[in-house]
Amino acid sequence: MSLAGEVMLVAGKDLRIEARARVTVSQVLPFGAIVLLLFAFALDPDRGRLAAVAPGLFWVAVLLAALLAIGRSFGIEQQNGARDGLRLSGIDGAAVFLGKTVAIGVQLLALEVVLGLGVAALYGVDVTSVPVLILAGLAATAGLAATGTLFGVLAAGLRTRETLLPLLLLPVITPVMLGATRAFESGLGGDASQAWPWIALLGLFAVLYLSVGVLAFGPLWEDT
């Protein structure tokens, strides 16, 4: 089977499990939504302060929800010997990495759409450039999903994985957080032309960690 076929197979498996169990939809998504409410409690919602910092709040909410989604992605492999089954299937480590990255990425994109609409409705932001938002969202999601999958497998199977994953992942994705927030500031009421360097940075980050994942996931997946 071709690499693309294997990738789709793994991604399809994860997404099918999600479609049936609906953990992301029924638990992670509401969690992200309530984080949006929490920000309104923490900051003063009346004086336009929320709209001014909406890009940052949006990405923090996405990030927190992403941690849950990534943990879930490797949680499903722990049950019923699923991990051993996947390893025995003869699918290449790189294909497993890309497949799980695609599955996490699709779920994150769905999260971002819903949370984005929530931010637009609750915080009262002006959209100045839709292409900037879409491109920055796609590039940031790719980087987030790639690093998340990489650290997900690093922490998988360890006793303290729930607490270890955020500590490992959050410092590494500092550039994603910065780039995505700055790009969204430009796309939401700012000068859209300033977003392109940040989108380039997000793209670079995504390509770099996708490459690292393709190389490193195999050994991590086989051994641990």
């Binding site: 500092t174 550039p175 780039g179 670079l204 770099l208 690292v212």
Partner: peptide, 14 residues
């Protein structure tokens, strides 16, 4: 190594 290759990107973006 994952942490190490992140350092220049963090430095650059910050």
């Amino acid at each position: 190594l994952i942490a190490f290759i992140d350092v220049p990107i963090v430095h650059f973006s910050v």
